[in-house]
Structure formats: C-alpha cells, structure tokens
C-alpha cells in the first residue's frame, strides 16, 4: 500500500533550480533511501515534506494532499540536535512535549524504550556525557517515540566516525527489522543505502531529478554471510556507476546558473 507519493515535485530558490521533477513513492513498512551527491537538494526535499519550505508539484500521503504539514512525519536531522540543557530522557521526550503531553507523562512513555535503544542507565545523564553513537540513538528514540506515520532520516550518521557509523548502520538495520517503520532516508553513502533499504532512488546533481530507481531484493538481516556481501557489493557498484556516470556527463552545469 502506497503511503507517501510525490509527483513532479519541483523547487527553486530564486533563479537557483534545486529540485527538478522528483517523483517517488514509499509503501507501508518500506525503507526507502534517496541517494545523491552532496548539495543535490536532498535536504530541500525533506524541508518540503515537513513544510519548512513550499514548492510545486503534488505531494500526497495516503492519497490526501500534504497540506497539514508536520503531523505525518517524525524528522531526524543531520546532526543529532540534542539540547545540551535537557537531560537525555527529556531530549527523548521532547516531541511528545511539543505535542502537548505533560513532561512527566512524556517521560513515562519514553522510559521503557531506553533499554531497547541501548541507553539504559543514561536517563538522567546530560547529552554532553554521551558518545556520538549514543547521542544518535537518543535522536532516533526521540524521533520514533513521536509515533508518526513515517520517519524522515536526514543523513543521520553523517557526522559520526567511520567505525561508529558502521556500527550504527547495523544497529539501525536490526531495529528496523523489529519495528518495520515506514521510513525515508537521505544519504550519500552508497553502502549505507544498500544495507538499509528496500528500494533506492538515485538523484542527479543539482537540479536534482530521479535518474534511477533500484530495488534491493536482499534478504534480511543483511549483515551476515559472504554471499550476501557479494550481492550487496554488486548492487553498490551498479549504483556508483550510475551516479558517477551521470555527474560526469553533466559536470556541475547546474551550479553555474
């Protein structure tokens, strides 16, 4: 069942055309990635979805136009965006408080989830006392606890070191298997996209358009077995060819405008 559907979505900032004709869809319980070069306008797409900016084209959720912005999505930004002045549990509960829940009730809602997110015992800690990976887990907890229809993940592991990032990708894959969130991930990390996604949309450089839609029919969990790794590597190579081929044939002519 299709939940999110975008058709011919475009966005320009003045004369700068950022998104040119984006069409995509995300089904119920599906993990979809948007993969593109840096500066391709991937984050602009999320801003359109959350209502931070307005564009042209059709955006529907469950067949209904996305006018009532924000209520459908829980958004996880690039950096963890934890508030240093809130304890970890209150950071996790922030979305519930914004929804109007009392702080105590919000805490009671998030507290049981700390163990599953590997954060047990850190409820009363300050964000400054956590490692980068833990901070990112708090950010994901803060996102999923909002119980929205769909998760928007904007390069959630982009700021982590390579080793922590690999660990977090595996961890997220495990979490997703348990929960089957409907999720849209923005990334420029090909391996991350292949590891996590059911389908991948590959975007061109700016102005961004969908140049390829790639299904990832690999069984889960995806972290086990050499055969699986070989298949994943083949898909990764294909995507890289598509991406590099596309950017090479049109070397940044979009930027000059």
């Amino acid at each position: 069942m299709t939940r999110l559907e975008l058709r011919d979505v475009r966005k320009s900032f003045g004369a700068l055309e950022v998104l040119a004709d984006i069409s995509l869809h995300v089904g119920e319980g599906e993990f979809v990635s948007i993969l593109g070069p840096s500066g391709a306008g991937k984050s602009t797409l999320f801003q359109l979805l959350t209502g931070a900016v307005r564009g042209e084209g059709e955006m529907r959720f469950d067949g209904v136009p996305l006018d009532d912005h924000g209520s459908r999505f829980a958004f996880m930004p690039q950096r963890d965006a934890l508030m240093p002045w809130r304890r970890v549990i209150d950071n996790a509960a922030l979305g519930l408080e914004v929804q109007g829940m009392r702080r105590r009730a919000a805490r009671e809602r998030v507290a049981p989830l700390f163990a599953e997110f590997g954060l047990a015992g850190f409820e009363r800690a300050w964000p400054a006392e956590l490692s980068g990976g833990m901070r990112q887990r708090v950010a994901l907890l803060r996102t999923v606890v909002q119980a929205r229809d769909m998760l928007l993940l904007d390069e959630p592991f982009g700021a982590l070191d390579a080793l922590t990032r690999a660990a977090m990708q595996r961890w997220l894959e495990g979490m997703w298997r348990g929960h089957r969130w409907t999720a849209l991930l923005i990334t420029h990390d090909v391996r991350e996209a292949v590891l996590l996604s059911d389908r991948i949309y590959v975007l061109s450089a700016r102005p961004a358009r969908v140049i390829s839609e790639i299904p990832v029919p690999l069984p889960r969990p995806r972290t086990e077995g050499a055969a699986l790794a070989r298949e994943a590597a083949a898909i990764e190579a294909g995507i890289l060819d598509t991406l590099l081929g596309a950017t090479n044939s049109r070397p940044f002519d979009g930027e000059a405008k």
Partner: peptide, 29 residues
C-alpha cells in the same frame, strides 16, 4: 540557537513561542 534544533522543533509542530521558550531562551543562557 543551533539551526538544527529550531528546524527540528518546527518539524515537530512547535510554534514560534514554543521554539523561543524551548530552544532560543536556553541557548541564550
């Protein structure tokens, strides 16, 4: 105020006053 925090609050559905109280004021401390 960290831009990501304000944007995230807005995406959560927070209004201007809420963003001021929850993000801008503590950031200014």
């Amino acid at each position: 105020t960290q831009k990501e925090i304000a944007e995230m609050l807005a995406a959560m559905g927070a209004g201007r006053w809420r963003i001021f109280r929850s993000a801008r004021l503590p950031s200014a401390l």
